[in-house]
Amino acid sequence: MSLSLSDVQHIANLAQLEISDERAEKTLAQLNGIFALVGQMSAVDTTGIEPLSHPIAALMPELSLRLRDDRVLEPDLRDAYQQCAPATQDGLYLVPRVVE
């Protein structure tokens, strides 16, 4: 399988990455190299094998993600968290106008 230039543009669009035509060309060749490598997987018969998403689940099949009680544990740090934001006002994050 190999990708086309329009595939690269489409994926970049989905990933919210601006990509120039020149850059897309170079990326296309590299992605096709990567997918040629990744394509080796298709030869493996995995019928009946469950996907493994959490590595320790291979050891402890009963393992599940922990849930905590629904209580407030953290203090309000909004001001501290917003200090590193590019633009804020009155405790809100500023972005370009979305609705006229």
């Binding site: 595939d7 994926i11 990326t27 990567i34 997918f35 995995t46 469950e50």
Partner: peptide, 23 residues
């Protein structure tokens, strides 16, 4: 870009799930 592609509808089973099975 690679990650976005392998999670796309239509490729998810062939790439992402297959990778997790081999994992």
């Amino acid at each position: 870009l690679v990650g976005t592609y392998v999670l796309c509808h239509g490729y998810y089973d062939a790439y992402y799930l297959q990778a997790q099975r081999i994992r």
